[in-house]
Amino acid sequence: MQIFTCPFCGPRDETEFHFAAEAGKKRPIPAETVTDDEWAEYLYMNSASRGKAQEVWLHVTCGEFFLMTRDTVTRDVTAVTSLPGRNA
């Protein structure tokens, strides 16, 4: 059972979290100019990298979505930060 650190609540048990998405995927817009292939790529294609990964996770109990940098092999969590939202 892993321990993840919610930027809002602090360290909590992994059962309180859901995986949301791989980080860094930009939603292609506007819909009129996006091809079926581009859209399918955005929806379904993940790199699922072995080793270092950057992902968006949700702390279900407080509703915070955040960026987590972790290693999928060693399970080390190296960084957690809040999403930048539109301010990015």
């Binding site: 949301a20 939603r27 968006v56 949700l58 279900v60 509703g63 915070e64 979505f65 809040s82 999403l83 939202g85 539109r86 301010n87």
Partner: peptide, 20 residues
């Protein structure tokens, strides 16, 4: 539904402009 709203609030919009 709450989480769908939260994800958009935090990821797509300015999170300081709305509260869920």
């Amino acid at each position: 539904v709450r989480m769908i709203l939260e994800e958009a609030r935090q990821d797509v919009f300015d999170p300081t402009k709305s509260f869920i």
